Simulated scan of single mutants.
Amino acid sequence: MLILDSGDKKMIPLFLISIIVSLLALKKETILNNIQSPFVWLISALCIYTAFSYYYHGSSSRELRTLIGVTLFLIAFPYQMLTQKVIQWVVLIGSLAICANSVYFNFYIGTGRYAGYINPIPYSTACALISIIAFSLLLDNSPLKEKALPLTAFSLSLPPIILSETRGIWLAFTLSIFFIIITKCIKNPPSRKYILFSFLFTAILTSTGAFLFKDKINARYNQTIYEVKKIQSGNYSTSVGIRLQLWQVAPELIKQKPLLGHGDKQVKVLKEKLEDGEISGVIFKFASRHYHNQFLDKMVKSGVIGLILIISILLYPLMIFKHLPQLDRYITIGLVCLFFIAGLTDVPFNHPQPLMLYLLFLVPICSRCKRDTND
Rank of each mutant, 00 (worst) to 15 (best):
M319S: 12
P352S: 00
P143H: 13
R113A: 08
I231N: 01
V282N: 08
P143G: 06
D264Q: 08
K255C: 05
N141Y: 14
R192T: 15
I331D: 00
L46R: 00
L24F: 09
P190S: 14
G234N: 04
L246D: 06
P122M: 02
S280P: 11
A100E: 14
I320E: 08
F321E: 10
P120G: 12
I182G: 05
F73K: 00
S131K: 02
N34L: 03
R113N: 11
K265N: 06
S233M: 14
D276E: 15
N101F: 01
I341N: 03
K184H: 14
G281W: 09
G234W: 01
A219P: 09
E275M: 15
E29T: 15
T345R: 00
K27A: 14
S22V: 09
T71F: 06
L335T: 03
I169Q: 04
F349L: 06
I12L: 08
E252Q: 15
L144D: 13
L327S: 07
L318Y: 10
R62S: 11
G58Q: 01
K268E: 09
K147G: 07
F173T: 00
F349A: 02
I181K: 07
K301P: 00
P159R: 05
E272Q: 13
G241Q: 07
I43K: 01
S367D: 13
E278Y: 13
I225P: 10
L151P: 03
I308N: 04
E146W: 13
L138S: 11
S131Q: 04
L362T: 05
L212N: 13
C99Y: 14
V304G: 08
Y330V: 06
A100R: 14
S124V: 01
I68V: 09
T208K: 06
Y54L: 05
L137T: 04
I31M: 11
Y330E: 01
G110C: 10
L24S: 11
T224V: 11
A172I: 02
F73R: 01
Y104N: 09
Q266V: 12
N33G: 12
A250C: 13
I118R: 02
P190H: 13
F201W: 14
L196V: 13
T373N: 12
A210Y: 15
T50G: 02
S142M: 12
P352L: 02
S6D: 10
L314D: 02
I313E: 04
C47I: 00
L72T: 00
W247H: 14
Y117K: 07
Q294L: 08
Y123S: 07
F284W: 12
L24N: 08
I305Y: 04
V240W: 04
L315A: 12
I311K: 10
R113I: 05
I333P: 00
P150R: 06
K85D: 11
S155H: 10
Y108F: 14
I182K: 12
N218V: 10
H262V: 10
L96D: 08
Q232T: 11
S164H: 03
I180F: 04
I182P: 03
K229I: 13
D8H: 01
V249P: 04
M81D: 09
L24H: 07
P317S: 05
H351E: 03
V240C: 07
L149R: 10
I180W: 03
S53H: 11
G263N: 04
F213V: 13
R329G: 00
G277E: 07
N218E: 15
D375A: 06
G112S: 14
L163K: 02
A148F: 14
Q245I: 08
K147Y: 11
L23I: 11
L42P: 02
F199I: 14
Q326I: 15
L359Q: 02
G263W: 00
